[in-house]
């Protein structure tokens, strides 16, 4: 057995959103996730970053089993998550839990906190005493025991999210997917929730798949980072390496677009790449490399051929033609003035 707790292989998820034509009806598909692979090491925090529509949440939903993948597979400790056509066995469901972005809508407003926390216990640990377990969960996340009789509406946003975290931990999972857990919260509350997550990770040896669009936050929580653009992964690296030495032009553009609060951070950003163009619609993904419409270094080959993952350093991979070429061509391209991007025919 490897130390990979989760292994994603060529995962694809295409949604059919309609049909075109009248006689030969062809389905119109959104390629939300289009062939991604990555591994999660046990005990790490793997960050998945991307802008809206990049497919990061779809990856999360497939992993917890809300969607079936169109192609590809996910292995949890060498066990295929989608092998059983009757659905995922309870023992596997217990291991993978999720915390959603908006605690306001992920907690049932008509259930008390006690009822909310009891549900996973009822299903996964029917033999245990539920009251003691609920109290243990509340204590674990530093909420006073009388909160068990409260309803979500009387809690603040941060507290609601903490309840959602407690609910995810109720089944004693080993992998928790955090889908933008602090995006709906204010910065002064975010710190508390993040530090709680880090503490719980240490205490229970959890592995996190941390999804966010906030790169500054990612810098502080993730051990490895992957960046997604239109359903594909562009770059994966160790967090420190990722932020100090970003390779993919999209990563550089993202990092240089972040508004920061101090001079030191300004210095840590890569050279400014002026962000241009719109994110293309996922229904109509550009040919070749999907980023070529916005890339300042776009070359001819980028419009025709989709690049493959290339290793650019230890544990650092990027999917860009710049790194596939022999050295001398590369320097030529980099020195060339980044001119306007010609329209594809």
């Amino acid at each position: 057995m490897t130390d990979h707790i989760l292994s994603v292989r060529d995962l694809k998820k295409h949604f059919v959103i309609g049909h075109e034509g009248t006689v030969n009806r062809k389905p119109i598909t959104v390629k939300a996730v289009d062939g991604i692979s990555f591994n999660l090491h046990a005990g790490e925090t793997f960050g998945l970053v991307g802008e809206s529509g990049s497919g990061k949440s779809t990856v999360a939903y497939i992993t917890v089993g809300m969607y079936q993948p169109t192609e590809g597979a996910i292995y949890f400790r060498d066990q295929d998550l989608f092998a059983d056509s009757k659905g995922r066995p309870l023992a596997l469901k217990k291991e993978i839990q999720i915390v959603f972005q908006d605690p306001g809508s992920s907690l049932n407003p008509r259930r008390s906190i006690k009822q909310i926390l009891e549900l996973p216990l009822r299903i996964h640990q029917p033999d245990k005493d539920r009251l003691t377990e609920v109290l243990r969960l509340l204590e674990m996340v530093d909420l006073p025991p009388d909160y068990m009789h409260k309803y979500p509406q009387s809690l603040s946003g941060g507290e609601k999210q903490i309840v959602a975290i407690a609910r995810a931990l109720a089944t004693d999972p080993s992998l928790v997917i955090l889908d933008e857990p602090t995006s709906a919260l204010d910065v002064s509350v975010q710190g508390k929730v993040i530090n709680l997550l880090i503490r719980l990770q240490r205490e229970f040896n959890l592995t996190f798949l941390f999804i966010t669009h906030d790169l500054s936050l990612m810098r502080n929580v993730a051990s490895r980072v992957a960046i997604m653009y239109l359903g594909k992964i562009c770059e994966v690296a160790e967090a420190a390496e990722f932020f100090q030495n970003p390779q993919h032009p999209y990563t550089q553009m993202l990092l240089s677009s972040i508004p920061v609060v101090s001079e030191e951070e300004e210095a840590a950003k890569p050279e400014k790449i002026i962000s241009t163009g719109e994110i293309p619609s996922p229904v109509n993904i550009p040919q070749g490399c999907s980023f070529h419409t916005r890339c300042p270094y776009a070359m001819d080959i980028c419009k025709r051929v989709d690049p493959v993952m290339v290793e650019t350093g230890a544990g650092h991979v990027a999917r860009c033609h710049l790194f596939e070429q022999p050295e001398e061509n590369l320097t030529q391209v980099l020195e060339a003035e980044p001119g306007p991007i010609p329209q594809s025919p």
């Binding site: 910065v187 002064s188 530090n195 932020f243 990092l255 920061v260 030191e264």
Partner: peptide, 19 residues
């Protein structure tokens, strides 16, 4: 001051508890 400390920094160094 609390607000500034709570903002995650691109240079890393962990996240303050907030206010």
């Amino acid at each position: 001051q609390g607000l500034m400390q709570a903002v995650p920094k691109l240079t890393g160094g962990g996240i303050a508890e907030g206010i």
